[in-house]
């Protein structure tokens, strides 16, 4: 727990709201799916390497979508790949998040007009939580994307509010 270490030596009980404990756990162990689609993957690898060190945020790669919490769509999504991306997303267990990294997966990037083979934004097949602009984005930008995602997770709630209880639950 970092800054809380060694402050509670007389007791092993900490009282905390369930929601904040859940959110705290989720946002600090964002395991991402280990795959890259284009040059953005190089920046993603650089972010994971020792200089920028993803691991200090608890962000580590997993090789199976079933163990992953977040999918980084790092690169150009071709039409051939789009259905595979969709399948990978469906295989992830909830709660699941998507970071769209770079111009290509945000909106088609340089292929937006004449790229017959490129999907014009990965949000056409799966819901996206955070968009990281850049071509490719620097590691700092991707880290910022993760910090934004952490912010988003902090605000999540497990409680259904009264006026929302009658509404149908949202399905992805």
């Amino acid at each position: 727990m970092g800054m809380l270490d060694k402050k509670y030596h007389d007791s092993n009980i900490i009282i905390v709201g369930l929601e904040s404990a859940l959110n705290w756990a989720r946002k600090n162990s964002l395991w991402y799916e280990q795959f890259g689609l284009a040059c953005c993957a190089i920046e993603m690898m650089a972010t994971a390497a020792s200089r920028y060190d993803f691991d200090r945020f608890g962000i580590i790669p997993r090789s199976s979508p079933r163990q992953a919490d977040v999918m980084i769509v790092a690169g150009t999504v071709t039409m051939k790949m789009a259905s595979r991306i969709e399948r990978l997303y469906e295989q992830m267990s909830e709660p699941r998040y998507v970071i769209s990294m770079g111009s290509c997966s945000n909106c088609g990037g340089p292929y937006w007009e004449h790229g017959y083979h490129v999907l014009k934004g990965v949000d056409k097949v799966i819901p996206v939580d955070v968009y990281v602009p850049g071509c490719p984005p620097r590691p700092e930008a991707l880290l910022e994307g993760f910090l934004k995602l952490q912010e988003k997770i902090t605000g999540e709630t497990i409680i259904v509010k009264k006026n929302e209880a009658d509404k149908k639950p949202e399905t992805a």
């Binding site: 789009a82 259905s83 088609g108 937006w112 017959y116 999907l119 014009k120 056409k124």
Partner: peptide, 14 residues
């Protein structure tokens, strides 16, 4: 060449 509008139900354009 004229691009197909959909590939496997996924839009190819914007």
């Amino acid at each position: 060449y004229v691009q197909q509008e959909f590939y496997q139900g996924i839009p190819t354009g914007e």
